[in-house]
């Protein structure tokens, strides 16, 4: 896999998505801060699914994708 400008654009879009989600999570569910964003979100333990949860699920997928992308880049360079 060659790292191109398009992949960089995807990575930037993913980071923006995660950042905006964090911001929105803070606005929609204002709570006393535990850490920030995703950590604060996890402290709320409602028994059943929440409306905003699907966005958080997508965010976790994007985060894993970003780590995978970075991991592949590092592995290609180092190993």
């Amino acid at each position: 896999m060659k790292f191109t400008g398009r992949m960089l654009a995807i990575a930037v879009a993913a980071v923006l998505f995660v950042g905006l989600t964090e911001l929105c999570a803070g606005w929609i569910h204002p709570r006393p801060p535990v850490r920030f964003g995703r950590f604060r979100e996890r402290r709320r333990r409602a028994p059943w699914p929440q409306p905003f949860g699907v966005v958080r699920f997508a965010e976790e997928g994007v985060l894993i994708g970003l780590v995978t992308l970075a991991g592949r880049k590092v592995l290609r360079l180092r190993l």
């Binding site: 979100e41 996890r42 409602a46 929440q50 905003f52 699907v54 699920f57 976790e60």
Partner: peptide, 16 residues
């Protein structure tokens, strides 16, 4: 993979 993503965010599934 999907389960790990789902488990990372409690509001998506709810605690149960």
């Amino acid at each position: 993979l999907l389960s790990v993503c789902a488990l990372e965010t409690v509001p998506f599934t709810g605690l149960v």
